[in-house]
Design a protein around this nucleic acid. Structure first.
Lengths: 212, 212
DNA sequence: TTATTAAATTAACGGTGTTAAGTTAACGAC
DNA sequence: GTCGTTAACTTAACACCGTTAATTTAATAA
């Protein structure tokens, strides 16, 4: 059965086949509930064959997450073309939240679960490349908005601004993803909470209050 | 060896002994890395004995988390006595963040990991009791601040305000806990990010800009 | 003194990530 | 063409996990 000798391209293809199967299962069942045997079974391999392409489950997960971070960057890419810096800033945030809520399990894997700290050198994503690195995109967007002079004068560090609004939006998404079903909390509708958070950020950051 | 017939009080004591051992391990190694055998070993029991006191690992975890949520409420309790509504609001938030950063693994268990949705009826915490329920405390604090008229006039729903600032503070804590070590991000010092977030929230919510 | 029974233990099951040992079929050398 | 070599893959097996079933122990109640 083994048709022997695979080119590097074929090997890479199998890697992505494995990753796609794993992602599909991760998304629907959560990372912990997915077994290597299940991933293998989904693509007609034996469990141990996966270890020919990924050294262990953690590395497989990491590869999937890497690809998804790239996908996030691509989802945000379109907003970078918007010419008005404030509008670009707004749409960037909006798309970020949309991505998180539309792909909660991707999002959970990326930002809400504990992995060993990521070494940029080992990542498949080129750090600081604005087509691949969503964090670099964020810094860029905030930087532009800063240069356009829309933020209050005392806010001088774009990185600090970026990290703050990231935290705010992340909090919104993370609580929704983890606790939306929790009967303890009488959650307001998510749209309302998004609007409230955006308004709070804008009033807190912008020189002039947002129009209307 | 089994000295037979334990009073209910003795049984409850053993429950807390188990919970304390589990918490200790959870905190230092993370929930997933801790085995029932390890918990049992720590208190000189066999693994299966734990099942005489907790039906499974999930319920043991839930009991630990419940106790920790109570501890959070107690940590916040002191701030409720502050007479000035704004100062109370500020200190409440400050203590919340302090608790999260001082007890990252507690915090992770409480708000950052996925459990089956919590049924208030099964919890050991009395919902809406301001001595036990930290969320009820938050609602109370925001309500008072609202009645004192410190928020912008258009902000009329205290619950929505509460959920928004919770999300903001949670985002701050959650990113710090999960990604502080990540070499990808050039994090600003945590104190600076806290200050920035608080200022953003205050400028975004308060009628008058915070003094100075 | 003895039967009962609560409290705990050991044995065992099915399932997990992972490694070691085997199997199969395509290739290069003669 | 055939024959080792070796890449690709599978099966077997290991150590460990959460959990359940069967068993032991010792204090009590008759």
């Amino acid at each position: 059965m083994p048709p022997k000798v695979k080119t590097d391209a074929e090997k890479q293809l199998i890697r992505t086949v494995i990753m796609d199967a794993a992602r599909e299962l991760f998304i629907h069942q959560g990372v912990d509930a997915v077994t290597m045997r299940a991933v293998a079974n989904k693509i007609g391999y034996s469990a141990t064959s996966i270890y020919l392409y990924f050294s262990d489950k953690e590395q497989l997960l990491r590869a999937v997450v890497d690809a998804d971070v790239l996908k996030l960057a691509q989802a945000l890419q379109s907003t970078l073309k918007i010419s008005d810096p404030l509008e670009r800033f707004l749409q960037f945030g909006k798309h970020y939240v949309q991505f998180a809520l539309a792909n909660p399990n991707h999002y959970r894997m990326m930002f809400m679960t504990q992995h060993p700290p990521c070494d940029p050198a080992l990542s498949s994503i080129e750090q600081h490349n604005p087509e691949q690195d969503a964090y670099a995109q964020l810094i860029g967007v905030v930087n532009n908005a800063c240069e356009a002079g829309i933020f209050k004068d005392e806010l001088t560090d774009p990185v600090l601004i970026a990290q703050t609004i990231w935290a705010a939006m992340h909090g919104l998404c993370a609580l929704q993803i983890n606790l939306a079903e929790d009967a303890w909390i009488d959650w307001r509708p998510m749209e309302t909470r998004i609007e409230m958070m955006v308004n709070m950020c804008l009033h807190g950051l912008l020189k002039a209050a947002p129009h209307e």
